[in-house]
Write a protein that binds this DNA or RNA. Structure first.
Lengths: 218, 218
DNA sequence: TGAGCCATCCCGAGAAAACGGGATGTCGCT
DNA sequence: AGCGACATCCCGTTTTCTCGGGATGGCTCA
């Protein structure tokens, strides 16, 4: 669990438009044995261009508030060119939408500029070891969001048969097709669907599917 | 951001059936100024009983692999009796279902027994300060799950009007109702829906709603 | 052995949706 | 002035759903 201290140094690129901050980071990393800061960029465009020519680093530390192309947009581009590279977001903005977008786009970590510098260093190790480096405040936000997603699973226990049928219907199939596919009568499907409506307290397929995909979507 | 070092000590309860581990923890906490380990329990039942009588601590460190009632089940019970208490899960099991269940049930943190003891101590501070304390491996898992949810956002650009209508339909409303609510004709709604089907490449509402809720669900 | 739950099948009337047209007007851009 | 995207409205036919019944057999549990 603590094996990365004395292995070969981790290659890192930095993308940060703020001169002061990037210099501070560069300075810190120089006195860190395990970190080898190889390049430093001021924009997403610059790092993407470099990615096309040079061999990618293990970690790219990415600011989000960049001029031109935003860091958020850059993440998928980076990962497309260098799928094995770990993108570690390091920014000031801990807004919900930014966090979510970064994660959705493939960020392996999300740290804040207010974090301790050791946290950043150990975050780098985390991401190369396949773990996530998330600021604890951001973690909390993610957890809160997480909790809200599978929120309303009150009483809506469908039979396995019923959810099977609802699934097929959600694929856009019509009852007749479902019946054929399951080798049962149209009427049976219809009856199942009626019961689904009762249980889910809806009165048409649309409502049922909406309920289903928003609660027991898995 | 680093204000909790010299404030009043944090009151903590420990729930852990493994004697060795709980003694180790107790030992560590004794030499920690900021932590005041007040009680130690061997089961979920025991801590729940205590919660009914004594004033709850700020943090409850909870093992999941308990005899009798599992830690997972205990979390909601604890929070019901002590809503302001922070439950910090500390266990060996980093299985996906356990993690998700713990979070869904309201855990403020999820650390592993393999973590550094300082990580546990700082995790306690994190949770009382409203942040999350998540092991980085577990974070990674959560992120991976997160990414899978809003996965397929390919090309399905609906007009704002179109998605508005689709939303209403997803609530189970019928076209007539949508028309009334928007103050437009039934025919207009019908036309919009037709175009939605074309764009989404489906041929009924069910498919459209499924697509919508699974991609641009927000 | 009866009660409950589940899955299955059946019918018919009326409501709603799907679909393939055709049509008008606005707005912004060129 | 024209083009394209968008929103609006209209009609008729065919298809599908919705929902009110009713009915059977299997299974489990008390």
């Amino acid at each position: 669990m603590t094996e990365s201290t004395s292995t070969k140094p981790i290659s890192v690129w930095l993308v940060e438009d703020n001169r002061h901050f990037s210099e501070a980071i560069e300075c810190i990393f120089e006195s860190e044995d395990g970190i080898n800061l190889k390049e430093s960029f001021r924009s997403a465009e610059a790092v993407l261009k470099a990615l096309a020519k040079k061999t990618p680093p293990q970690v790219i530390i990415l600011d989000l508030g960049l001029p031109g192309m935003s860091g958020i947009e850059a993440i998928p581009e980076i990962l497309q060119h260098a799928p094995k590279c770990h993108v570690l977001v390091l920014t000031t903005d801990d807004g919900r939408s930014k966090v979510l977008a970064a994660i959705a786009n493939g960020a392996a970590g999300y740290l804040l500029k207010g974090d301790d510098l050791d946290a950043i260093v150990s975050g780098i190790r985390d991401v190369v070891d396949g773990r996530a480096a998330i600021n604890s405040r951001v973690s909390r936000m993610i957890l809160d969001i997480f909790r809200k997603i599978p929120k309303p699973p009150p009483e809506a226990k469908l039979t396995s048969r019923e959810s099977e049928i609802l699934c097929l219907l959600a694929d856009g199939k019509i009852k007749k097709e479902v019946a054929d596919q399951l080798g049962i009568s149209y009427y049976t499907v219809d009856t199942h669907v009626k019961r689904i409506y009762k249980k889910l307290q809806v009165n048409n397929l649309s409502g049922a599917i909406a309920r289903m995909t928003q609660s027991g979507g898995e």
